[in-house]
Simulated scan of single mutants.
Amino acid sequence: MDNAVGPILRMCDEVELVAAAIEDDNPDKEIEVIDRGSYVRIHASDHLRVTAESLKRHLGDQFEIRSLEAMMSAFSGRIQTSSDSVEWSLGRRGTASTAATR
């Protein structure tokens, strides 16, 4: 996949539910979920987003979006987090100044 961006999650019981939430929030994207045993790569070309609403729908109302960060061992691209979404992209979107790379 060209220009792949997205999270790399430690293997845990919630990985499939996080992948389902990401797929819900990106219906127009081809998303690849690759199981590597101890971790799972979830990525798409250029831009990927997941919302707190989708995560809560799949993981329960108690799930906090900040918990997603603890599940990530790494990510591809730039990441931008807010209280209601996490986005991965190749570069900054809009006027975001908090994007960071790893």
Rank of each mutant, 00 (worst) to 15 (best):
Thr81Gly: 10
Gly60His: 08
Ser76Gly: 10
Leu48Trp: 02
Gln62Ser: 14
Met71Ser: 10
Ser85Gln: 15
Ser45Gln: 15
Ile31Glu: 01
Glu23Leu: 04
Asp25Val: 03
Ser54Lys: 03
Ile34Pro: 00
Glu64Arg: 08
Lys29Met: 12
Ile65Met: 09
Ser38Asp: 15
Arg36Tyr: 15
Ser82Trp: 06
Ile34Gln: 08
Glu69Lys: 11
Ser73Trp: 11
Leu48Arg: 08
Glu64Ala: 14
Met71Pro: 04
Gly77Met: 00
Glu32Tyr: 01
Lys29Arg: 12
Val33Arg: 06
Glu30Ile: 09
Ile22Tyr: 02
Met71Glu: 12
Ser85Glu: 15
Ser85Lys: 14
Ser54Pro: 03
Glu69Ala: 12
Phe63Cys: 09
Ala21Glu: 07
Ile79Leu: 02
Gly37Asp: 04
His47Ser: 07
Ile42Lys: 00
Glu30Gln: 07
Ile65Val: 10
Tyr39Cys: 06
Glu64Phe: 07
Arg36Cys: 15
Arg66Asp: 14
Ala44Lys: 03
Asp28Pro: 02
Pro27Gly: 04
Glu69Cys: 06
Val50His: 03
Arg36Glu: 15
Asp46Ile: 00
Glu23His: 03
Asp24Pro: 01
Ile42Phe: 00
Ser83Asp: 15
Ser83Tyr: 11
Ala21Lys: 06
Ser83Trp: 10
Glu32Thr: 04
Arg66Gly: 04
Arg41Val: 05
Lys56Leu: 06
Gln80Tyr: 11
Ile79Lys: 04
Pro27Thr: 04
Gly37Asn: 05
Ala74Tyr: 13
Glu32Ala: 05
Leu59Phe: 03
Glu32Trp: 02
Gly60Trp: 09
Ser85Gly: 09
His47Phe: 13
Glu32Arg: 03
Arg36Met: 13
Leu68Asn: 06
Asp61Pro: 08
Ser76Gln: 12
Glu53Gln: 12
Val33Gly: 01
Ile79Pro: 01
Thr81Phe: 13
Ser73Pro: 05
Ile65Tyr: 07
Ser82Cys: 11
Gln62Pro: 03
Arg49His: 06
Thr81Cys: 15
Ile42Asp: 00
Arg78Met: 15
Ser38Cys: 09
Ala44Ser: 13
Gly77Tyr: 03
Leu68Gln: 09
Arg41Leu: 09
Met72Gln: 11
Val33Ile: 13
Phe75Asp: 01
Ala70Pro: 05
Gly60Ala: 12
Met72Pro: 03
Ala21Phe: 09
Asn26Cys: 07
Arg78His: 14
Thr81Tyr: 08
Arg36Gly: 07
Leu59Val: 04
Leu48Cys: 07
Ser73Ala: 10
Glu32Pro: 00
Arg41Ala: 03
Ala44Phe: 06
Gly37Met: 06
Asn26Ile: 02
Asp24Asn: 11
Leu55Val: 07
Gly77Cys: 01
